Computed example of a mutant assay.
Amino acid sequence: MIDDSLLDDPAALQRADHEHALLGLAGAGARVRNALRLAEAAGLAGLRPDGRPRTVLVAGHGAALTAGSVLEALAVTSTQIAALPPHDVTHLAHGHHGTPAFTAGLVWQLPGWAGPLDLVVLATADGGEQGLVSLAQQAYARGCAIAVIAPAESLLAEAAPQVRALPLPYVPAAPVDTEEDLRPAEADLPAEEVGALWAFLTPLLALTERIGVTQLPEGSLEATADRLDELAVRCRPDAAAYTNPAKDLAAQLSGTVPLLWADGALTAVAAERFAAMLAERAGRPALPGVLPQVLTAHRGMLVAKLGGAADPDDFFRDRVDEPDPLLLQVVLLRRAAAVEDEFTDPGYAVSRARRLADAHGVRTSDLSTAETDPLQALAELIALADFAAVYLTLATP
Rank of each mutant, 00 (worst) to 15 (best):
G127E: 06
Y140K: 00
G27N: 13
A377D: 07
R54I: 00
V362S: 05
A26R: 12
A104Q: 10
D226F: 02
R335Q: 10
E179P: 15
V257S: 05
Q215A: 15
V70I: 03
G289I: 02
A377M: 10
R334L: 07
R15T: 02
D177Q: 08
V350E: 01
Y242M: 08
L6M: 12
R352F: 11
P245K: 08
A370S: 15
S368N: 13
G219R: 10
G115N: 10
L367S: 02
A83S: 12
I382E: 15
R281M: 05
G60K: 05
V350N: 01
D188T: 11
Q162D: 02
R48E: 06
V58L: 11
A309W: 07
T99L: 15
Q109W: 11
T369C: 08
A11H: 14
A240F: 11
W198L: 03
A139D: 00
A304P: 00
D263T: 15
Q130V: 13
L333F: 06
L328H: 10
A270H: 04
A114N: 04
D313G: 05
P288M: 03
Y242P: 03
V362E: 03
L44Y: 03
H91K: 07
D238S: 10
D318Y: 08
H96F: 09
V120K: 00
A63F: 07
W108V: 02
E380R: 07
G29L: 03
T393P: 06
T124G: 05
T79Y: 02
H61I: 14
S351F: 09
V171W: 08
L260V: 10
L36C: 02
P167M: 14
P237Q: 14
P245C: 12
D318L: 14
S365E: 05
L302Y: 06
L249K: 14
P258G: 10
L266K: 10
M301Q: 08
F315H: 10
P116V: 01
G127T: 12
L74A: 11
F315K: 04
G112Q: 14
L392C: 12
D318S: 08
R334F: 10
